[in-house]
Amino acid sequence: MKGTEPDAGVLVRVAEGDAGALTELYERYGGPLFAFLNRLAGDRGTAEEVLQDTLLAVWRSAGTFQGRSSVSTWLFGVARRQAHNRLRRVPPPAAAEPCDRADGLPGPEELAVGGDWLEAALARLPLAQREVVVLHFLDDMAHQDIAEVLGIPVGTVKSRLHHARTKLRECLHEQMA
């Protein structure tokens, strides 16, 4: 049964040129990958384009998967590289704003009724910190998996999380003031 086939088996089929297997991977991981990319890019259209680039890269490089990590970790790594390639060319507009500028962000009233201050605060984090926050808190990845996706030591993941929490806390305090 294809729906319960392990991810590694589906990836082998992708490497063999099975387009249906790529569709199956998309059905399994498209949502989480898009959410990750959308938070990195800060723009839905860019995230959609990067997801397409990611699927093309998976199609072309599925045969290089060596099983040293889970398929999901490998997919997030491919998506991250594609996002970095795209964002190097066109940086996200919100990422350039410093955290101490409150222009355009929701005030306490909007926060009280469900305003999305977190998305605005995430957009203000440096990309390296935003990645670890999104992977850890929003995609529920363990520190070791994040380290594999990003190609950095676990200690660096922890350090980036620490700095990101501090910056997010500062942004929240600004919004509550």
Rank of each mutant, 00 (worst) to 15 (best):
L172I: 11
F34P: 05
G3P: 11
A121W: 00
A164W: 06
C171G: 11
R89G: 06
L11T: 04
A62D: 01
Y26K: 09
V10C: 00
W117H: 04
L118D: 05
R13N: 09
G31D: 14
G151D: 07
F76C: 01
T4M: 13
Q129F: 06
R86Q: 03
A19N: 10
H173R: 14
D116Q: 05
A57G: 08
A142W: 15
E131C: 07
A79R: 03
A120K: 05
G114I: 08
P92R: 05
L125C: 03
L172E: 06
D7Y: 04
H143F: 15
G17C: 03
V71G: 04
R28W: 15
D100E: 11
A102R: 13
D18N: 13
H136K: 14
E5Y: 07
T156R: 15
R60N: 08
L33T: 02
G42E: 06
R28F: 14
V10Y: 01
A142Q: 13
V58L: 09
V133W: 15
S61Q: 09
G77H: 01
R60K: 10
V50E: 00
V12G: 10
E170G: 09
L150A: 13
P108D: 07
D139A: 14
N38F: 09
K2R: 13
F137K: 11
G45A: 12
S61T: 11
P6G: 00
A177K: 15
V134M: 10
L33P: 05
E97I: 09
G151W: 08
G17A: 00
K158G: 08
L122N: 00
V132T: 07
L33D: 02
G17Y: 00
A147L: 04
S72W: 13
V113L: 15
D139Y: 10
D53V: 02
P92L: 04
L125Y: 02
L125F: 02
T166I: 15
E5H: 07
T73A: 14
L111A: 09
G67V: 00
Q144E: 14
D140R: 15
T166N: 14
P6M: 02
L125T: 04
L168R: 00
G3K: 13
V10I: 08
A96C: 03
L138G: 09
D7C: 01
A57F: 05
G42H: 03
P126N: 08
G17F: 03
R86E: 05
V14W: 06
